[in-house]
């Protein structure tokens, strides 16, 4: 039977329309799903990555809440100009515990994937409160309201949720969430537990006010750890290869 391909033929035949629709949708679906099967070989075998400490996690939630990602990417692409400005290109391993990731797709401000340690805590707090006080040419809005107390009652619940999504938080981490959070925001506190659970987590009075733990503390703690976990001096090209 001669089959003339035309919209008319398809539109008049319900089964044919159904089958062809299914095939089309499947191709789109596969294009999204199949790459996930290769995620094991996509993540580089570098050392140093870990889940966020409770204070950093709260900072990250505020970062998401305030929509920082609409202006700041966290994705250094493998081009020379980006490497010269921001450092080594971002690894999949560096955002393997991000739910959701904050790669972003637009840079009104600079990329923040390796902003950690680049400036002092004080600078970050002052810059968030009033960006133009330190960077006159900045167009960033002020976030002075972050100096309010941090509500961290649900930090343990957040960690449990992330664990359900595959982030390897242990029972011990979740049990000590509140204590670790307070210890990180107070350099006088005993940080042994924090350091044993979260390698390289730095204690500090991130907002310059030691009286209480504020949202500013959390955001600055988060910003100051970005991109600092993987020690690129020790990374071999072998480890960076995606299988």
């Amino acid at each position: 039977m001669a089959f003339k391909f035309s919209h008319g033929t398809i539109e008049r035949n319900l089964i044919l329309l159904g089958v062809l629709t299914l095939i089309t949708v499947s191709i789109g679906g596969l294009a999204q799903v199949v790459p996930l099967f290769t995620v094991e070989s996509t993540i580089e075998r570098v050392e140093g990555t870990r889940p966020y400490s409770p204070l950093e996690l709260m900072g990250r939630e505020i970062y998401v809440r305030e929509g920082c990602y609409t202006c700041h990417s966290q994705m250094i692409r493998p081009f020379r100009d980006e490497a010269e400005r921001y450092g080594h290109y971002s690894l999949a391993a560096e955002s393997m515990y991000d739910r959701p990731f904050q790669w972003g797709s637009k840079r009104t401000g600079p990329d923040l994937a390796r902003v950690g340690g680049r400036y002092s805590d004080d600078w970050h707090a002052q810059h968030l409160r009033s960006p133009r006080a330190v960077v006159p040419e900045s167009v960033m809005p002020p976030y002075a309201f972050l100096d309010r107390p941090l509500d961290y009652r649900r930090v343990g619940a957040s960690m449990a949720t992330l664990r359900a999504l595959g982030v390897p938080y242990t029972d011990e981490m979740i049990r000590n969430a509140d204590a670790d959070l307070r210890a990180q925001a107070n350099p006088e506190a005993d940080g042994a537990g924090l350091a044993s659970r979260y390698a390289r987590a730095r204690q500090g009075v991130f907002d310059g006010n030691s009286a209480e733990v504020t949202e500013m503390d959390a955001v600055v703690a988060f910003l100051q750890m970005l991109g600092t976990l993987v020690q690129f001096r020790d990374v071999t090209p072998e480890q960076l290869r995606q299988q």
Binding site: F37, R77, P78, F79, R80, A83, Q242
Partner: peptide, 24 residues
């Protein structure tokens, strides 16, 4: 995303970028 299927040009963005940086 199948191992070995890297396209006939053999271009991989990361390697190209790394090479460009090393060259500079």
């Amino acid at each position: 995303p199948i191992r070995g299927l890297t396209g006939v040009t053999g271009y991989i963005a990361r390697e190209a970028g790394t090479a460009e940086l090393a060259e500079a």
